[in-house]
Design a binder for these strands. Sequence first.
RNA 1: GCGCCCGUAGCUCAGCGGAUAGAGCAGCUGCCUUCUAAGCAGUUGGCCGCAGGUUCGAAUCCUGCCGGGCGCACCA
Length: 619
Amino acid sequence: MPPEYVGLRGDRRVASRPCSSRDECGRPAELELGRAVAFAYPSAPRERTFLMIKILAARFAAAFSAVAGHPFDPAVRVSQFSDFQANGALALARQLGRPPREVAAAVVAHLDLAGIADEVSVAGPGYINVNMAAGFLAASAAALLGDARLGVQERAGERVVVDYSGPNVAKELHVGHLRSTVIGDATARTLEWLGHDVVRANHLGDWGTPFGLLIEHLLDLGETAAAHDLSVGDLDAFYVAARAKFDADPAFADRARSRVVALQSGDPETLRLWRLLVAESERSFLAVYATLGVTLSPADFQGESFYNPMLAPLVSELDGLGLLRPSEGAQCVFPQGFSIPLIVRKRDGGFGYPATDLAAIRYRTQELKADRLVYVVGSPQHQHFEMVFQTAREAGWLAEPARAEHIGFGQILGADGRKLASRSGDTVKLAALLTEAVDRAARIVAAKNPELDPAEQAAVAYAVGVGAVKYADLAGDRIKDYVFDWDRMLSTTGDTAAYLQYTYARIQSVLRRSEESASGVSAVEGPLLLDSSAERALALALLGFADVVEEVAETLQFHKLTGYLQSVAGAFTAFYDSCPILRAPSPEVRASRLGLSRLTARVLRQGLDLVGIVTPDRM
RNA sequence: GCGCCCGUAGCUCAGCGGAUAGAGCAGCUGCCUUCUAAGCAGUUGGCCGCAGGUUCGAAUCCUGCCGGGCGCACCA
């Protein structure tokens, strides 16, 4: 087999590559192709924010710097002993050589929290505990209720390119693409909502030697028949058939090889056939994206072929910069800090993915003027991206303030602790996985709420099923592997999407009833009253939304958002359990509790929307 | 051989320099003539892989081991 027939390009977004030639599969790699605010507190102008911790941190910072004589981090955190605590006094004490409690007391003496906190105390070795004033929480929560953005300030707008999903043309989306697609879409949604200018980049594997045999197979079938086969959705079967012919029929293999040459030299007819394959694949991808509720559109497809014309000039440019060094017949860059080369041009003259990735960086920073490049690709490719980024820096294509990040993630494992595969050992197709998710959810919905009419049951099953899959993918630290477990992800209790969706649906139910009982007129919101501990705790939880969203936008650790939403839902259900809303003791309390409910619903809905999970109104 | 990641309750996971290590599931106790019990409240359960070190203070930082996963030049 000629070396150029080694494998499909692309699939770089797959968490782990298909079997390599020396792994447990014991099969050569070339046989593996088919698998594979402003805070509106009274008298506070717009520069304040809703963020409790930021408000406190600012006040504490003033007090700390008064004591320290210079700026000092107050280390304000959420506390289990009070609402918040500042831990900075311990570190400052060491610096000043004074007893920590004494320093803490000095800080408290300089602290101005009038109207914000009604209880400040020094505890333990020198922690400063703060309990917020109920009036302040109430006013803050009321302001949140009146803020369409729930306290999250809109950003000035960086241009961010989010590179995710990246399936291979002529192969179907499979579990290996799930995490990149889900995490990438959550990234795009979140950054976009924050006000950034997000460019979604679906870096398809749409170029390479395999297209020789694919195109010849297509010609054998006839374009019409081939298009039919492809549109039926079984792209993998099309590839497998082509591959089988290539292996069995030398004449076919020769045609395939010359077809590759024709493709690479730009033969118009060959390019037309190639586009046909690409177009059919894209239709297949879009169908799965639609089911998944992923925001990728045809405009976001920007495959490897897009960069083809840029590759030769790019290598020349690297040469001109003196970064290129021949090694064993290949053109290489040896980025600083790495002992192995980045092969930019292969010995046979072809370009590999490092060249394409470099071209993409240069295009994205220079043409798209991107400030931030996010690559949502499995963690095995960490070193590759570090090398590419370093090379781009040395070439001047990735210069401050622009930054590139590899957002890696672990594998999805089966119950056996090994990479998830179907019973027969094949990769699991995404379309089939989602169908099963919805089917399983449908059974649960039918059992839990048979009163819903069939259409609504189906809609709920869809939201719950797909939500479960996405949530399971996002709820853990993305760097770790996780075990794919239907029972756990579809559990109606616990840390699941269904629990959040159910909480949301319950709130909607109450709100619907409130409108009925108010004879169609929505009640005017009164001031919020936080008299019970449950109401207070709920308000406090709701006020944390902006903090979490901002952190997630920076770290892209979506499990922090899902964990936060769980705490909000938990605070709500505790409140729901102990505080009658519609039958509240007075109209004022009722209005306040309805306000808290409405705010909770909005936070849950917005939070889930940021990660692409749908919230049905009934379930 | 070099490098990266992960080892926390029976299970799945948070916490990543600060007070008694948290949550969900599973187990056990309670709670529906009342707004969706797909729920809530309580409870049992942990030498935070091991050993050193840094620090007033370490699950958290450093070093070395052990265990698991994954990379390491013409596949993408």
